[in-house]
Computed example of a mutant assay.
Amino acid sequence: MSTVNWRSLPDRRPLVTLSSVVAACILLGAAGGLITAPQIETWYTTLDKPGFTPPSWVFGPVWTTLYALQGVAAWFVWKAGLDRRAVRVALALFVLQFAFNVAWSPAFFGLESPTLGLVVIVPLWVAIAATIATTARVDRRAATLLVPYLAWVSFATALNYAIWMLN
């Protein structure tokens, strides 16, 4: 049984693979939005929120941008070659953080629980930081693309915490 040398496989259509990875990240990320949308105009409006809460319309464009950046980052890492252990570790952490990301909306909005939101968003933050650290060993451009995501999730963690405290 031979193993595939992923590094030797040429990417004959880089724009197709890049677009596919970015689209997958945006679509998977949007899945959380399906749970969020009905709760924004009902349950979420009843919550006491801190003064630094952005208007609801900000979240869609920000998350779409962040998911696109994540897709580009994952693509850069993948292009470095799956035969490298560092690449596999970085991509595994990427998948882990993405799973926490997708889980946050059902926890916070779906279950109407700022407490469960915190239970998910704190390990999400840790997973993003670990993803950036491992990704930096593979491709600094990819790690840099994830920094705005960590910054936004830092803000979202503070917002989630403030909502939890106020309610």
Rank of each mutant, 00 (worst) to 15 (best):
R7D: 00
S8Q: 04
L9W: 00
L9D: 00
D11C: 06
D11S: 09
R13F: 11
P14W: 14
L15Q: 12
V21Q: 06
A23P: 04
C25Q: 06
I26E: 02
I26D: 04
L27S: 09
A30D: 06
A30N: 07
G32N: 08
G32H: 15
G33N: 03
I40G: 06
I40H: 08
T42C: 13
Y44P: 13
T45I: 06
T46E: 15
L47H: 14
L47S: 11
P50T: 09
G51D: 06
F52M: 08
T53P: 08
P54Q: 09
S56D: 12
W57T: 07
W57L: 05
W57Y: 10
V58C: 05
P61Q: 09
W63M: 08
W63E: 05
L69K: 09
Q70N: 14
Q70P: 02
A73K: 14
F76N: 00
K79V: 14
A80D: 09
A80W: 08
G81F: 00
L82K: 00
D83Q: 03
R84F: 01
R84S: 00
A86N: 07
A86D: 12
R88C: 02
R88E: 00
V89E: 00
L91Q: 02
A92S: 07
F94L: 01
L96K: 00
Q97L: 05
A99W: 13
N101D: 07
V102P: 01
S105D: 01
F108T: 02
F108K: 05
F108L: 05
F109V: 13
G110P: 06
G110M: 15
L111Q: 10
T115D: 08
L116S: 07
G117K: 00
G117E: 06
V119E: 03
V120P: 13
V122D: 03
P123R: 12
P123H: 09
L124E: 01
W125Q: 02
A127W: 12
A130S: 11
T134H: 02
T134N: 09
A136H: 04
V138L: 08
D139W: 13
R140Y: 08
R141T: 15
A142S: 12
V147D: 13
